[in-house]
C-alpha cells in the first residue's frame, strides 16, 4: 500500500456540510518535489477540500500522508507535526502581533519539541522576503495584501513543511505582486517543499505546476500533466479564455 515518495494519497474523499456534499469522491496524489494544482471556478469545493485534507473539516474516504497508512480523522496538530502546512485563503494571520512574532510562531511546534534552530530559519525567510525584514516590528494588520501573503508563506515555512497547501495565494493581489508570489512558489520546489496549489488564476497555476486537476461542482472533471491541461480545448475555453486580461473565470461548462 505504501509508496515511497508519495506525500499525499487521497482516495474517494467526500466532504459534507450537513447533507450537502461540497466535495464528492475526489482522488488525488502528490509525489515528493511536485507542484500540483487544482483549478476551477468559485464554489467548486477547492477550499473545502484543502481544509479537509488539513484536518480542519471531517472527511469520508481514505487519506494517507507521507507514505503512511491511511489516517482516520487526524487532528490539525498531528498533521502539522507530520509536515503538512496550509496557507488559507484568508491567511489567518495574528493581525495585532508584529511581523516578527507572526513568523516566530510559525516555528512554535518545532520549538516546543526541542529544536532550537529557529533563528536560522528566520534569517532565511527574511532573505526570501526582504520586505518582511523591513517591516519586522510592524503589526501584521498594517501590511499590504502582497505583504500579508508573504508573511503567511513565511510563517508556514518556519514550520519546515514537506507539503504545503496553498489556497488562492494570488487572491486580490496586483499583477506584479502576483508574479512575485508565483515565482516564490516555484522556488519552494528547490527548497524541498512540495506544493498543492488551489487557484482561480488557472493560467499562472498551470504554468508552474507539474500536474493539475480541474474541479467543478465538487468533483474532479479532468486531470493530467499541467502542460497538457493548458492546451486542452475545454480548459482553454472555460478557464484560460482568449484574452489574458480577463481574470474572472468563465462559468463552468457542463461535461
Amino acid at each position: 500500500m505504501t509508496t515511497p515518495g508519495l506525500l499525499l494519497d487521497a482516495r474517494q474523499v467526500t466532504v459534507r456540510y450537513g447533507k450537502i456534499a461540497a466535495v464528492q469522491d475526489v482522488s488525488l496524489r502528490i509525489r515528493e518535489g511536485e507542484v500540483v494544482t487544482i483549478v476551477g471556478p468559485n464554489g467548486a469545493g477547492k477550499t473545502t477540500l484543502l481544509s479537509a485534507l488539513m484536518g480542519l473539516l471531517p472527511l469520508a474516504g481514505e487519506v494517507a500522508y507521507f507514505g503512511g497508512a491511511p489516517m482516520r480523522a487526524p487532528s490539525v496538530e498531528a498533521l502539522v507535526r507530520a509536515g503538512m502546512g496550509l496557507i488559507p485563503e484568508k491567511r489567518e494571520l495574528f493581525t495585532s502581533m508584529s511581523v516578527a512574532d507572526n513568523l516566530a510562531l510559525g516555528g512554535f511546534d518545532r520549538w516546543r519539541r526541542g529544536t532550537r534552530d529557529q533563528a536560522d530559519d528566520l534569517a532565511e525567510i527574511y532573505a526570501l522576503f526582504p520586505r518582511l525584514a523591513e517591516r519586522r516590528m510592524q503589526p501584521a494588520s498594517t501590511l499590504s495584501g502582497g505583504e500579508r501573503q508573504m508573511l503567511a508563506m513565511g510563517r508556514a515555512l518556519m514550520a519546515r513543511p514537506r507539503l504545503l497547501l496553498l489556497d488562492e495565494p494570488s487572491l486580490g493581489l496586483a499583477p506584479l505582486v502576483m508574479r512575485d508570489i508565483f515565482r516564490t512558489i516555484e522556488s519552494l520546489r528547490a527548497r524541498g517543499v512540495s506544493v498543492l496549489l488551489v487557484e482561480q488564476n488557472a493560467r499562472a497555476a498551470l504554468k508552474i505546476a507539474d500536474y493539475g486537476y480541474v474541479m467543478e461542482a465538487g468533483c474532479f472533471v479532468l486531470e493530467g500533466p499541467a502542460a497538457e491541461l493548458a492546451h486542452n480545448e475545454r480548459v482553454i475555453e472555460a478557464y484560460l479564455g482568449v484574452a489574458t486580461a480577463d481574470r474572472t473565470p468563465a462559468p463552468a461548462v457542463p461535461l
Binding site: 480542519l56 496538530e77 502539522v80 496550509l86 494571520l93 512574532d101 512554535f108 520549538w111 514550520a159
Partner: peptide, 23 residues
C-alpha cells in the same frame, strides 16, 4: 515568552494558531 505569545495567537486567531500546531 513563547508560550505567552502562543496564547495570544490562539486568542487572536484560533484557526491560524491551530495551523501553527498550537492546539
Amino acid at each position: 515568552s513563547f508560550y505567552g505569545k502562543a496564547m495570544r495567537a490562539a486568542a487572536i486567531n484560533p484557526i491560524g494558531a491551530r495551523l501553527m500546531g498550537i492546539s
